[in-house]
């Protein structure tokens, strides 16, 4: 499949160009970097930075949003721990940016990711995922517990601690 970052009419054209280029480059780089950590992601076949296009292999049958389960949430927790260990974040790990099929749980759309070693950034990844689960699931608690348990297995406990403080900063809970 070819993924093109469509220019956004609402954004200043120069700012839009800058964001589309940056995100296209990062997506190509981080999608491959994640796969090297054993996280299922689409294979990147081609990148055209000026056009803002990527050619990717299609993965999964459905978005996680449509197939949310504790087991899938666990997969996402494990995958995020793996990329955090490698020193980068996804940036936007919502249930719409996770694809699923019979066997695997894929992370896609790394366009908002970046390299970092800050626990705060890792905690934000977890926060974004939990927020999206809360926004779509009627009973998010078991999903959140499964997700955090899987992350704790492989990831850094300090990140989960920081997640609590990130949540505490939100104004409406």
């Amino acid at each position: 499949m070819t993924k093109r970052r469509v220019p956004k009419a609402y954004r200043h054209p120069d700012l839009d160009d800058r964001l589309r280029r940056d995100r296209t480059v990062l997506e190509a780089r981080l999608t491959s970097a994640a796969r090297r950590q054993g996280v299922p992601t689409p294979v990147v076949r081609d990148v055209d930075v000026p056009e803002g296009t990527l050619v990717l292999r299609t993965v999964g049958d459905a978005d996680l949003q449509a197939a949310l389960s504790a087991e899938r949430a666990r997969d996402v927790g494990r995958h995020l721990a793996a990329i955090h260990e490698a020193g980068f974040v996804h940036g936007d790990p919502t249930t719409r940016n996770v694809r699923v099929d019979g066997e695997r749980t894929y992370l896609i759309d790394f366009g908002l990711g970046y390299y970092t070693d800050d626990a705060e950034d890792f905690a934000m990844d977890l926060h974004v995922f939990e927020r999206s689960v809360e926004g779509t699931a009627d009973d998010p608690d078991p999903l959140r517990e499964a997700f955090e348990a899987a992350y704790a297995d492989r990831g850094d406990d300090a990140v989960l601690g920081r997640l609590r403080s990130v949540e505490g900063r939100g104004r409406y809970q």
Binding site: L15, G91, L112
Partner: peptide, 12 residues
């Protein structure tokens, strides 16, 4: 337009 940061993390 001058270059300034643009900080979006998911929906935050």
């Amino acid at each position: 337009l001058v270059d300034l940061p643009y900080v979006v993390k998911g929906m935050d």
